[in-house]
């Protein structure tokens, strides 16, 4: 297969089309603008639909409509726009609609800046709108992994009838790396529940259950799905972890920096390793069954995933945290120092 250089944002758009996505809705926001731009050029050629929506609120609701009509549909955005999409995501979860939303995370809160960040972790893992909401959250760390996860995102989304979020960041979106693109697949036929016109009895896609016992039954069904996902869909990768006396947990771009830092401290004789969650929700708790002496979590945030790591370890080992915020990406040297400090018991930037 031919390797080509592609920007993360463009690669994800192309991979979505190749995965059978035939409807894209979006609104301009940096650092993900190459996605709608690419879709505007290429989606019509694939026989699909591109609409520049008037807002992220409208965009996610267009995904609602198209996905409910049985077509693989997606949107992409960054933090401020993702906040606006959470309303629609809650309705999609309540209505059991699939769909893929990419959040190319940037610095927050508020307008923040356009630099890379992982500050939306809580929002994507806990905050997909009001109510008891969850969706699978995939966190690629290379452009190739973005491409590889795109068909997975659509398949998982349809299997569980819940939206899937791909949590990337400004670096992954803007960076070019060599990628091998998969062969395009044909879009799957619309599922039975899709509203395509009531040739038989009418179908209804709705999230309203006025009677408490009805809504409870609905949410219990969602909870069974959530549990099934927790049991079956945890994904993570370990790097030089087997003999590690200190394990560093990081995802996305932060995991790449940690990988470099692990190599640095290994070269100096310190047995460090990396646990890289690929699913942020469900959090890969199975990666934490065996525990070394020390743990360190590195995030481009004020400390969010670290809470899941502490929950997964249930107090079995101390967990340090090293985070940079505001779009600052730590250097491998800085992280290497944080790993060394973690081993001697200091917690840097706790």
């Amino acid at each position: 297969m031919k390797r080509i250089l592609m920007k993360g944002n463009e690669a994800l758009a192309e991979a979505a089309i190749r995965a059978g996505c035939r409807a894209y809705f979006g609104y301009p926001i940096t650092p993900q603008n190459e996605v709608p731009e690419y879709m505007a050029r290429h989606m019509p050629r694939a026989g699909g639909v591109f609409v520049q929506a008037e807002s992220e609120i409208a965009a996610i609701n267009m995904v609602h409509g198209a996905s409910g009509a049985g077509v693989r549909a997606m949107a992409s955005t960054s933090g401020p726009g993702f906040s606006l999409m959470t309303e629609g995501l809650s309705y999609m979860i309540g209505s059991r609609l699939p769909g893929v939303v990419v959040n190319v995370m940037r610095g927050g809160p508020g307008l923040g800046n356009i630099a890379p960040s992982q500050g939306d972790y809580f929002q994507v893992t806990r905050g997909l709108g009001h109510g008891d909401t969850h969706g699978i959250v995939l966190a690629p760390s290379t452009v190739q992994e973005i491409v590889d996860l795109m068909p997975v995102a659509f398949e998982l989304s349809e299997r569980y009838r819940l939206p899937v979020v791909i949590a990337a960041d400004g670096i992954l979106g803007q960076m070019m790396e060599p990628v091998t693109l998969p062969e395009p697949i044909a879009p799957p036929p619309p599922p039975d529940w899709a509203t395509t016109g009531a040739v038989g009895s009418p179908r209804v896609i709705s999230s309203i259950y006025l009677a408490p016992e009805d809504l409870e039954r609905h949410v219990l069904s969602l909870m069974r799905t959530y549990q099934e996902i927790r049991e079956r869909e945890q994904r993570w990768e370990a790097y030089r972890a087997d003999d590690a006396e200190v394990l560093v947990v990081a995802y996305g771009t932060a995991a790449r920096v940690v990988r470099s830092a692990v190599d640095r401290v290994r070269a100096q004789g310190l047995a460090a390793g990396l646990i890289r969650p690929i699913t942020l929700w469900p959090f890969p708790t199975t990666a934490f069954e065996r525990s070394p002496r020390r743990w360190l979590v590195v995030e481009l945030s004020a400390g969010q995933m670290v809470e899941d790591v502490r929950l997964a370890l249930s107090g079995r080992a101390p967990v340090g945290f090293h985070g940079r915020v505001g779009g600052v990406v730590p250097s491998p040297a800085e992280v290497a120092e944080a790993i060394r400090s973690a081993v001697v018991g200091e917690v840097v930037r706790a």
């Binding site: 035939r22 409807a23 809705f25 639909v49 609409v51 929506a53 609120i57 409208a58 965009a59 609701n61 267009m62 995904v63 609602h64 409509g65 198209a66 996905s67 409910g68 009509a69 049985g70 077509v71 549909a73 309303e87 629609g88 309705y91 209505s95 509203t195 395509t196 016109g197 009531a198 009418p202 179908r203 209804v204 896609i205 709705s206 999230s207 309203i208």
Partner: peptide
């Protein structure tokens, strides 16, 4: 057939359906 939209968003949901 029906889809039930979030408050105020029915024209956006309708856009998604009609376009595909």
């Amino acid at each position: 057939d029906f889809q039930q939209a979030p408050h105020g968003r029915a024209p956006a949901v309708a856009t998604g359906i009609k376009r595909v």
